[in-house]
Amino acid sequence: MRKKSLTMFSLPLIGLTLGLGMAACGESEQQANQQAGDERPIGLAVHGGAGTMAREDMSEEQEAEYHDALKAALEAGYTILENGGESLDAVQAAIRVLEDSPLFNAGRGSVFTSDEQIEMDAAIMDGRDLNAGALTGVRTIRNPIDLARVVMDESPHVFFSGDGAETYGEQFGLATEDPEWFETEHRREALRRAQEAETEQGEEFRSERDNKEFNLGTVGAVALDENGNVAAGTSTGGMTNKRFGRIGDVPIVGGGTYANNETGAFSATGHGEYIMRAVTLHDISSLMAYRGMSVEEAADHVVNEKLVDMGGNAGVIAIDAQGNITMPHNTSGMYRGSVDAAGNKHTAIFADD
């Protein structure tokens, strides 16, 4: 297995009042990069989770906080790309910003399990050679995406779990925090509501819970660099009130995270049980490779037809090898943002943004 040099980041705190020019963007959110001369296209997209959300339930101040956090992640990743850096580094940098924000269900701000613990999953993938690193059930690694990168770059393996993953990260000096550092009152309150609803509704709650708030907030990023290489990464705290070591789609290669230079890079969010069963992201890539679909056509088919028919709520961000970006979702909202080769940036929350 080819080994790559390990790249770690010490990112400065990025101000949330960034001078970012907002670009008009159609709801398809596909951006074809028009480049002068022989310059290769670059691009980046991020998400902060898809789910049921209503504009009337969110104040203007809360909306602004989410937009600012998405912009900060875009800025962190795009700065690397526009300076000639690699897509893997851009994805890692963008996700670290979102993991450090208590707004999202990843890193700090992760949701609670049924026994009031926090267990985090993450994965990263290199489109050049399909190399990948994934982990599940970590509790003290400050930035799980960093551990996923270490697993990919330094290990002959792909997937680590629990205490083994923690130990492996510690061997490489990754930053850790006490479990309490990841906890927020907002997530503890969500756990209380989920448990009350489950007690009241029983099986009905279990069949409907993923249509509600209880899995919202998974983060991800996809990128294309000037060398034509794509990368994808995803990070999550999982599902509120999840049971007994449950593992979702995020660390599953081809499920919640996938990248292939022949097609593109993809990151999913939403109802993980369906995303896994549909092998959602590999399916999108295969439709592009074998049926010649565009990234927009393939992603729309899988998200808005296949997953809908199965009953799964989800969203996907994707970038193809030419820099076209699409971000379909079959939910009422998805925290999302993108920046193309020309530096045009766009963030959105609701379906009609």
Rank of each mutant, 00 (worst) to 15 (best):
S267F: 07
L70H: 05
L16V: 11
N227F: 10
A348E: 08
P251Q: 09
Y258A: 00
S101T: 11
Q117P: 04
R40G: 04
V302G: 07
G173R: 04
A54F: 08
E204D: 14
H329W: 03
L135K: 02
I95D: 06
L20G: 09
D68F: 00
S59I: 04
L191T: 03
Q201R: 15
G43V: 05
A45Y: 04
G254Y: 03
D68A: 15
G255P: 02
T113Q: 01
R149P: 02
P12Y: 08
G37L: 11
L281T: 15
M53G: 09
Q195Y: 06
Q201E: 15
Y258W: 09
S101F: 10
L81I: 04
M58Y: 09
D178S: 14
N105G: 03
E63A: 03
D178N: 13
G343A: 07
G270D: 08
Q34E: 10
T269G: 01
A45H: 02
I319Y: 07
R206L: 15
V219H: 06
R149T: 12
Y66W: 07
D89W: 04
E75L: 13
T52Q: 14
L224C: 01
N330F: 05
M152A: 11
S235V: 06
A197D: 14
G43I: 04
D352N: 13
A54V: 04
K71F: 04
E208S: 14
